[in-house]
Each structure stands twice: as C-alpha cells, then as structure tokens.
C-alpha cells in the first residue's frame, strides 16, 4: 500500500520524536511533581529532586522499551 517501505501503523520517525518528548514530560510531571508536592507537605528537600530523577529514568526506560528494544 505505502511505497515508502514503512510498515503502516508502525511508529515512524516523526511520531517517535514527539512521543519521546511526551513521555519525558509526563514522567517529570507525575514523579517530579509528586515529589515536589510531598516536599512541600512534609518539609523535606530530597523528595523533589529524587522524584525528578525517578521521572526521567522511568521515561527513558519506557522510551527504550517502546522504540529501541526491537
């Protein structure tokens, strides 16, 4: 059907780039944001930065699973 050699429906390149940004943003938002809110609540200071690192790590792991593993 398509003459560009791409498998239809497979994540092609443009889509992958936008998805990567989406995963990074949501990883930072949910874990980093959660950590920062816990920091505010409990009065600690390490949960925010730990959450940000956890968010980036989980987002990059997810990207690896989705686009790089196969």
């Amino acid at each position: 059907m398509s003459d560009t050699g791409k498998k239809p429906g497979s994540p092609n390149e443009e889509g992958a780039f936008w998805s990567i940004i989406g995963y990074l943003v949501s990883g930072l938002l949910i874990w980093g944001g959660g950590g920062l809110l816990l920091d505010k609540w409990l009065g600690t200071s390490f949960l925010g930065i730990g959450g940000l690192l956890l968010g980036v790590t989980s987002a990059i792991y997810l990207i690896w699973l989705r686009f790089i593993r196969d």
Partner: peptide, 11 residues
C-alpha cells in the same frame, strides 16, 4: 502512571 498520563493528558 507515566503511560496513563502520556495517553490521556500529555498528548
């Protein structure tokens, strides 16, 4: 949680 947020909010 990251996946759910990506599909329903971030995208």
């Amino acid at each position: 949680p990251v996946e759910i947020l990506t599909y329903f909010v971030t995208r």
